[in-house]
Design a protein around this nucleic acid. Structure first.
Lengths: 185, 185
DNA sequence: ACCAGTCTTGACTGATCAGTCAACTATTAT
DNA sequence: ATAATAGTTGACTGATCAGTCAAGACTGGT
């Protein structure tokens, strides 16, 4: 019904950055599908890095140490660029939409399970070497993961990366590191 | 400009539950002010309960035990009523708006500081009694608090209260409880 | 040249959101 | 009784949101 008559109006109702969103729906059928795809893409981008940080060639407790350092540095860098701490995107997104968007929720859970596996095998290795006491590596991994995410959330809300520095000690406590084996940072 | 002529239209643009929001702004000048007020009100409602749970008459490690039990039971109850875990409202709200709404952010931080004081004094008492080693009770309290919130967030996203049950062990590890003093739940 | 498939465009819909407002009603003090 | 004060109402604004759509542009194959 005469849409061709309207092209000469300046696009008054959409601002500059918004004009091209039409083709978005050619690739994603919904916003929530994009969210899930973005989280998966993020994971793929980081996987090689995680593999390196948690390489079996690194002493198990040092893996955590390096990982926590890496995340700290990464978030500190982002903080400089954009003024505020981003925290863990999956936690932020997850706690916002998990009750309304099952697709995104399932994606977050799936990726978390994969991340926890790194923790789990490092814990198992540490236990095997007698560095810690962890008869149930999976439970310990989940607990440590939850603690870490709590710290990330706090750091985000208080906009203070230094909370992540303090976490290393708590992590060693959660792991049950015997004092004489503590990895120095 | 003739608003009195419009009263005979059925309120077409507002649905039933929405009709009376006009007077809201008589009491609050913005939505964010309501949010902050609601969080403060929640705190006031719970304060007496916190005081009882963390009463100095209770052995220090048992305070945590009772507190974690209380939160678990409370969330389990709410889950039955509304189908999904609510987690900690301050964490959910905080991680959603903390970068955009300084008023709410400050309120969350303020209330958290108050809550952390309960943890801190329990930790100090436990340390004094030789139950744990905690030379810096405030740091330990903050670490435990962060870990707990991480677990709450996970529980919410995975919609599973049982994660809170498992937290007790992690809490004892974070606290550095000497084995022979562990409080039984 | 022309056709089919791939991709882009921006105006459009309809819903919802935070917030405003002038007119109205209820309460209270005098 | 009356006047001031406190509180209520719902239509209204303007912004933004997720999502649709018909029209067109770009591509490679024949």
């Amino acid at each position: 019904m005469g849409k061709q008559l309207r092209h000469h109006f300046g696009g008054g109702d959409l601002r500059a950055g918004r004009r091209k969103k039409g083709s978005f729906y050619y690739f994603f059928k919904s916003k929530s599908e994009l969210t899930a795809a973005a989280l998966e893409a993020e994971w793929n981008k980081n996987k090689a890095n995680m593999d390196a940080l948690f390489s079996p060639t690194v002493p198990p407790l040092e893996r955590f140490d390096r990982y926590f350092d890496y995340v700290h540095d990464h978030l500190a860098e982002l903080q400089e660029k954009c003024g505020s701490i981003l925290g863990c995107p999956m936690l932020s997104i997850g706690s916002e939409v998990s009750t309304q968007d099952q697709g995104v929720r399932a994606t977050v859970e799936r990726i978390w399970d994969r991340k926890i596996k790194y923790f789990e095998s490092a814990i198992r290795d540490a236990h095997a070497q007698g560095l810690i006491v962890a008869p149930d590596p999976q439970a310990k991994a989940r607990a440590l993961f939850a603690c870490y995410h709590g710290t990330l959330a706090q750091a985000r809300i208080q906009n203070d990366v230094e909370l992540l520095r303090d976490f290393k000690q708590a992590a060693m406590d959660v792991l049950g590191v015997k004092h004489e084996h503590a990895a120095s940072s």
